[in-house]
């Protein structure tokens, strides 16, 4: 296998497994990526391995509000599949047709809905992983609540592709909002009051917006800008939330060859570099910024535990 950094992907789990076995046998270093729209390129690796070509929705259990999907599915494809059930993944970039669910969950990307629903990563109930020695394991369960064994899913997800390749995820879903009212909030609102719990919350062009599900004005100063029921509410929510994808704008849909050499484009490096500094948020987020008070720590804090964990996962 070549020593040049390269990107490998395959349309079937078994092929990825074969590739990993080869990487392992050749003693190469690797890192899992999605379509690299969100990944931070701080780790050098001989091989970038991607599950982006696995794109199936395996099942949707509408009654249990759960589903199992491949890591390579785009958020938009997932939501297209969920539409007929009136369900959604708690993530604001649900119209994103670039990027992958695997990348979204691994990157820990916060969402405009973080205040009310937690991170997209918090919705993971179980997962299937490809380990560095070619073994495939499952973590978690398919039910909404399970404390059997350790929470391996969270640990592996937070390693952002440095411990295992995520192949499939079992996700907790929630009903789409049936009605939403959007408000523009006073500009001098520095800190949210303690009763703050909107469905979505973001800033745009220096103004602050929030949406609540069916309620009166949450603050006397707030100005109602729109109120929608049913599908219209949902469409508007999606449109508004779609702005979120500009945080991490991507150079385009998945062009495998383009990433071939270093696995990253200049443009991405530039964006990711901006992300390295919290203070860069306002410039970066031309359209949308995270709610005041929240921030992302984009530079991975070197974890003294990572190498030990990687070794542990290889030991037989």
């Amino acid at each position: 296998m070549s020593k040049e950094p390269c990107l490998l992907t395959a349309p079937a789990q078994l092929d990825l497994q074969q590739q990993m076995l080869q990487i392992h046998a050749d003693g190469l270093s690797w890192r899992a990526v999605g379509t690299q729209t969100r990944m931070q390129p701080q780790t050098a690796a001989d091989v970038f391995l991607s599950a982006a070509a696995l794109k199936q929705i395996h099942w949707i259990d509408a009654e249990d509000r759960t589903c199992e999907v491949d890591a390579g599915l785009s958020p938009a494809a997932l939501h297209a599949g969920l539409d007929e059930y009136g369900l959604m993944l708690s993530h604001s970039g649900c119209s994103d047709d670039v990027g992958t669910i695997g990348g979204l969950l691994n990157s820990g990307t916060p969402s405009l809905l973080a205040g009310s629903c937690g991170l997209p990563r918090d919705q993971v109930l179980g997962a299937t992983w490809l380990l560095g020695d070619g073994r495939v394991i499952r973590s978690g369960a398919r039910v909404v609540k399970s404390v059997a064994g350790y929470d391996v899913s969270r640990l592996l997800l937070s390693a952002q592709g440095q411990l295992a390749v995520g192949l499939r995820f079992i996700l907790r879903l929630r009903p789409r909002p049936s009605n939403l009212r959007w408000y523009q909030l006073p500009t001098d609102l520095q800190r949210p009051p303690s009763s703050w719990r909107p469905w979505a919350d973001f800033q745009q062009d220096g103004r602050r917006f929030a949406a609540w599900e069916s309620c009166d004005s949450p603050l006397p100063q707030a100005q109602s800008i729109s109120s929608h029921e049913g599908d219209t509410a949902w469409k508007l929510a999606r449109k508004q939330c779609q702005l979120a994808k500009h945080w991490l704008a991507t150079p385009g849909p998945w062009p495998a060859e383009k990433m071939h050499a270093a696995g990253l484009s200049m443009q991405q490096c530039l964006i990711l570099d901006h992300l390295a500094h919290q203070s860069a948020w306002p410039q970066l987020a031309e359209d949308v910024a995270l709610p005041a008070g929240s921030a992302v720590l984009p530079h991975r804090q070197a974890s003294p535990w990572l190498d030990a964990m990687r070794q542990a996962l290889l030991r037989s």
Binding site: Q40, S107, G108, P110, A114, L119, V147, Y150, D151, V152, R154, L155, L157, S158, A159, Q160, G293, S294, A295, V296, L297, P298, R300, Q301, S303, W305, L306, M309
Partner: peptide
């Protein structure tokens, strides 16, 4: 106060 991207040992500890 932040959405940390550190290795989530907190998550591994819980449960």
């Amino acid at each position: 106060t932040t959405f940390s991207d550190a290795l989530d040992l907190r998550g591994f500890l819980l449960g």
